[in-house]
Amino acid sequence: MSEAKTETAPGTPGSGWNWKSWIQQGLAVGTLVMLFAFFSFMNPAFYGWSNISGILLATAGIGIMALGTTFVIATGGIDLSIGTGSTFAAVVVGVFGVNVGLPMWLALIIGVGAGALMGFINGFNVAFLRIPPFIATLAMMMVAQGLALILSDVAPIYFRDTPWFSQIALGNLIPGLPNGVLIMFVLVAISAFVLARTKFGRITLAIGSNVEATRLSGIPTKRWLVMIYTFAGMFTAVAGIVMASRLVSAQPQMGVGLELQAIAAVIIGGTSLMGGRASIVGTLIGALIMSTLINGLRIMGVQSEWQFVASGIVIALAVWVDSLRNRSKST
């Protein structure tokens, strides 16, 4: 998987052998391994497959969201609309697939299209209207939540009449592994490839490193930014569909608050909030760390209050390590 661990400046794509980058990756993996060892020691129920697959399934929604967001953050941007955006996409699938009665496969495509459209608008607002990404996507977060409530008429939309809908997340194409997790792994592979091996990935990182230099080298950065946000929007929609599948319903208030968990996963994984550096495998590990920590504390019967405290400390530590690295780079 070394090709996915990419640290690069414009013009040096895929030169991922920076030892500092490896330390960050190593820290993330090490944290995950330590968490596993600790919780397994505390309670053997933790490492049962039933629990492991539970952790993976709990990771799927946020993990898929975080993959798309990795690209946005790699450009030095941010996307706050992913939580409610995923809800909006799920509701769109419900409206077209259940209320309107279109074939479900078509509704799914429309749902992903709705996610892409949201991303497109985000990108357009950021690149062409020069609205700061934080504000542009905050606005989209509110619009998406409102539209999800309006379209759903503030009630859940149930997918009971399409029996295979729940199989999107809960079926087992690979015995024992929920399909939602499989989808996440496939998307990890795809986005790792796109980031490390394609022009799209190279330009994403180049924009994050130095947007001005990238533009001067003749790359139409605004158009690329729109494409990057659109690409991320599709991940948001898939995350929404996977979560809706798990609930066999589109819940209009489902994704509120998930955006910050997804962003935290991206940062823990070693992607820089400043842009220019990203790791897809890191994002996956970051998302796994978050859900493993919460699950393990629950298995131990630790109070919810302390689960929040522990998650907060892990996020703070991860970003601190990240800033240490940035500092050493600039001196």
Partner: peptide, 24 residues
């Protein structure tokens, strides 16, 4: 054996219940 809090969120509560069943 355990009391946990899931904000009434369906997915959060499902994850909590899974952890409880696995632990007990």
């Amino acid at each position: 054996v355990d009391v946990q809090y899931g904000d009434g969120d369906h997915i959060e509560s499902a994850d909590i219940a899974r952890a409880m069943i696995n632990a007990n």
